[in-house]
């Protein structure tokens, strides 16, 4: 790989930030950190990360809101978003997937290694299917509009 893969971690808990950041960096990723959705959106626009790890429960702009705004932004909607959730938030995670997140990780269920593995899989799939991603999103939209009728 010519340049490092950029990951934006949006998480408000210091302990977790430190853990994920250290792990990702030691595995060769470039990591930017935002503490809430508002900062996260700014960072997204500025840095154009290859993947966003997004916590849901955060102050100011929460994960859902940030995800929604990303999907509404032409420049950001193709960036794969992985939700970081708790087990209790499984229903939330489902909602996140419907909103366009590519996957969700239940934080307490995964070791850092497993999270890295998951990220690699997702990045691999997203570079391979880069052309197809926007198309899939469009189909989804059509279906939803049909539902409304």
């Amino acid at each position: 790989m010519a340049s490092k893969v950029k990951i934006l971690l949006v998480e408000d808990d210091n302990l977790l930030v430190r853990m994920y950041q250290d792990k990702l960096e030691s595995d060769g990723y470039e990591v930017a950190v935002s503490e809430d959705g508002e900062q996260g959106l700014k960072a997204c626009k500025k840095d154009k990360p290859d993947l966003v790890l997004l916590d849901i429960m955060m102050p100011k702009v929460n994960g859902f809101e940030m995800l929604k705004q990303m999907k509404e932004d032409k420049g950001l909607k193709t960036i794969p978003v992985v939700l970081l959730t708790n087990l209790g938030g499984k229903d939330d995670a489902q909602r996140g997937l419907e909103m366009g997140a590519v996957a969700y990780l239940i934080k307490s269920d995964y070791t850092p290694d497993e999270i890295i593995k998951k990220i690699k899989e997702i990045l691999h799939a997203s570079t391979r299917d880069k052309e197809k991603v926007p198309e899939a999103v469009e189909i989804d939209k059509d279906e939803k509009e049909e539902d409304k009728k």
């Binding site: 808990d13 302990l15 977790l16 853990m19 030691s26 934080k107």
Partner: peptide, 21 residues
């Protein structure tokens, strides 16, 4: 919720230490 976040951090850090990373 308040318990799970620190427990997740403990899990992650311990995992990295135990694996010698």
């Amino acid at each position: 919720h308040a318990l799970r976040t620190p427990m997740t951090a403990i899990k992650g850090f311990l995992d990295m230490i135990i694996k010698g990373q």
